[in-house]
Design a protein around this nucleic acid. Structure first.
Lengths: 221, 221
DNA sequence: CCACAATACGGAGACAGTCTCCGTTTCCGC
DNA sequence: GCGGAAACGGAGACTGTCTCCGTATTGTGG
């Protein structure tokens, strides 16, 4: 669509890798037998990128439930092309998620690096996390659903975010600042739940008070 | 889009009362001018009931996102009839909610009556609450959305449930067992969020651990 | 008990979104 | 350049939402 994105090219989902269309979970068969993974054809890559750039815009404007055909149209490709690259909506959201999973992981480490007391650290981390996953309306609840569904294309990236969270929790736990028996996975669900509520809610509600309750339920009394 | 928001007509099949479609959500203009609320015609009431009964079955079987046309078909009425009685899906869910709002309110009072310590009482109450609002798949997140949206047909009943929750919280607060500054509305959102996560999740996950965190965040340390 | 206005019915069909199939076009290695 | 593999794109099948309006039902006043 706009000439801008053609040039900037939000390329390369992962460094040096070629976009693989089969989101099969078993893809790292790197040792047994290398698939003859040939690089994407030039036009394919061009369309892939155009679709992704357009999706980012449309999802930001109207949320992750926007019409996919419209995204295709605005990207200047046929519906068939969109569905070939992204067989499901989740696959498309997933491709977009790449950006933030990186940032989320970085945020977690940054939070740990601050060395703040548990309460402040958690509050900060949770707020950043929520900011990221509510970037596109509707994304938070999709993440909630994917988190415990290995069949979802987004499952992998949910794990990355889950790992980031686990690092923070375990760090604080090692410092002895948490209650006993805090399960990182549950914390993750809880915080995503808060994100989801905030995202779905018609009112612009502040997540802070809810997060405070969660944090108080986690830190050692 | 649709003139959905114009819809009101939350019919109230409460015992003995006759459904009145004119009753706008905004005003009980009961004093200025009585609407000539005439009783529903026999065939109308018959269909209304049939639709509701069918919806209860279908929503239980396949969740609250099932096709409305299918409900109409299975109820043996035309789509037009369904949409006349229930202009939006929310209106239909709302009508079904009547059952549980009553039960939820009763549960809250029962919880208070037990006189248990805060932790047990809250845990019990929250679990009952979640059991009710996750009866039909998809309902929990709709309730989350309606809770802070006065325009939703379900808003009224969300308030009833919110009031029930407030009673429990305030009771415990009066007993001095809660932290200072606990906001019932936020607790409600949080617990509904947990319900929503559990409901959306593909895995059958236990809400207990999450509720424990919330409860620990609420009760006095 | 009948006529007839008000009320409700129901289904055809407009509309929107998802997703696929397959004839056509584009790319890239030779 | 040429040829086959890879990718395109759009017509259209399908599903679900929601409306319009001719027809049927109801219950009331004569």
């Amino acid at each position: 669509m706009t000439p801008a994105d053609a040039g900037k090219a939000t390329l390369d989902p992962s460094p040096g890798s070629v976009a693989a269309q089969g989101s099969s979970a078993a893809t790292d068969a790197s040792e047994t037998h290398e698939k003859p993974v040939r690089p994407m054809r030039a036009d394919a890559r061009r369309n892939y990128d155009k679709i992704l750039a357009t999706a980012r815009i449309v999802f930001t404007e109207r949320g992750t439930d926007s019409s996919l055909d419209e995204i295709a149209k605005r990207a200047g490709v046929g519906p068939g092309t969109l569905y070939r690259h992204f067989p499901t909506r989740a696959a498309l959201v997933d491709a977009l998620m790449q950006d933030w999973t990186d940032r989320v992981a970085a945020d977690a480490d940054a939070a740990i690096a601050t060395g703040q007391p548990a309460r402040e650290m958690l509050l900060g981390w949770f707020e950043h996390f929520i900011d990221h996953i509510t970037l596109h309306r509707g994304a938070a609840s999709k993440i909630c659903a994917a988190m415990d569904d290995p069949a979802s294309p987004m499952y992998r990236k949910c794990r990355v975010m889950g790992d980031a969270n686990r690092r923070v929790i375990e760090h604080l736990d090692a410092r002895g600042e948490l209650r006993t028996g805090v399960d990182p996975a549950n914390v993750m669900r809880l915080v995503s739940g808060v994100a989801s509520v905030a995202d779905t809610s018609h009112a612009e509600l502040d997540v802070r008070p809810m997060l405070e309750v969660v944090v108080d339920g986690i830190v050692r009394a």
